[in-house]
């Protein structure tokens, strides 16, 4: 690869190679506070390559490849190269990580205890984590929470926060301009802009935290809190995990312990401010 960068994000490390300089330059800027992998050896490799050899220059379009790939991953425009790199890193984690039970969830920490939020795309879990991360909580990740199979702790995977559509302006009002990547218009998920986590969240990314509260947020409804039964929690978390089946018995043991010990609620909210009020209320009750 002509251009490359190596990054450590939480317990995982990546080498991202690209046929073009721009995506690597953007990664270098946004991940400037992240350490390089020890001795330069990365867990995963992500490659951004021309979908056809001659397309590096003529209407360039990117094909994402790596250790673990999806055969039908669609080529993306070079203008979305940063998004392609982020998707590539997510894909490697989702398909290849085995050291933790991987939950598709956002996560923040306060006083050594973790709040885990899971839900489908558009549920608001990512924006909510990003907002809490600017308001006294440590952002542990907006995409994956890593459940330790032995200790039951949650570990952070604080890659760039992927802000979509309305969430972009919400966070532009809260975070300094030099933490934002370029505005990527008209991607498959609408407009996207990446945000670097705060420097303190990056500096503490190796610190685990015991999970204290699980929330299923849902944006766009009147404020409401519902308790969720353990059976439903277990089912939703197995659906939210990309490696539950692959981990076998250790995954079962870790997840049942999580479900039996962590209180869980579904929360509906019409706005970010309502969501933060509900979170703070439930967090106080969980203490």
């Amino acid at each position: 690869m002509r251009h490359s960068i190596a990054l450590t994000i939480g317990p995982a490390s990546f080498r991202i190679g690209s046929a073009w300089p721009a995506p690597i330059a953007q990664l270098a800027h946004l991940y400037r506070a992240y350490p390089t992998p020890p001795e330069g050896i990365a867990d995963f490799t992500v490659r951004l390559e021309p979908s056809k050899p001659w397309r590096r220059h003529i209407r360039p379009s990117i094909h994402i490849t790596g250790d673990h790939g999806l055969a039908d991953a669609a080529p993306m425009a070079l203008a979305h190269g940063l998004l392609a790199a982020e998707m590539g890193m997510n894909l490697q984690m989702a398909l290849g990580w085995r050291r933790h039970l991987l939950l598709h969830a956002s996560c923040v920490e306060k006083d050594g205890r973790a709040l885990v939020m899971t839900g489908e795309s558009g549920s608001g879990k990512s924006t909510l984590a990003a907002q809490l991360g600017e308001r006294g909580w440590r952002l542990m990740g907006d995409e994956f929470a890593l459940l330790d199979l032995h200790s039951g702790q949650i570990f952070a995977f604080p890659r760039l926060i992927s802000l979509k559509n309305a969430a972009i302006s919400v966070m532009e009002a809260e975070a300094a301009p030099d933490r934002f990547g370029p505005l990527l218009r008209a991607t498959a998920k609408g407009d996207i802009r990446h945000l670097s986590p705060r420097a303190d969240a990056v500096a503490r990314m190796a610190e685990g935290a015991m999970p204290a509260l699980l929330l299923f947020p849902r944006y766009g409804f009147a404020p409401e809190i519902r308790t969720v039964g353990q059976g439903e929690v277990f089912m939703r978390l197995t659906q939210a995990s990309t490696n539950y089946t692959a981990l076998g018995e250790p995954g079962f043991t870790a997840l049942t312990r999580f479900v039996q010990t962590v209180p869980a609620h579904a929360i509906d909210f019409p706005s970010g401010e309502d969501a933060i009020a509900l979170v703070e209320q439930l967090w106080a009750e969980a203490r």
Binding site: G229, Q230, G231, E232, F234, E249, F252, T253, T256, V259, Q260
Partner: peptide, 9 residues
Amino acid sequence: LIVRALDDI
């Protein structure tokens, strides 16, 4: 078999 009773299932 490992059997774990949750609160509802």
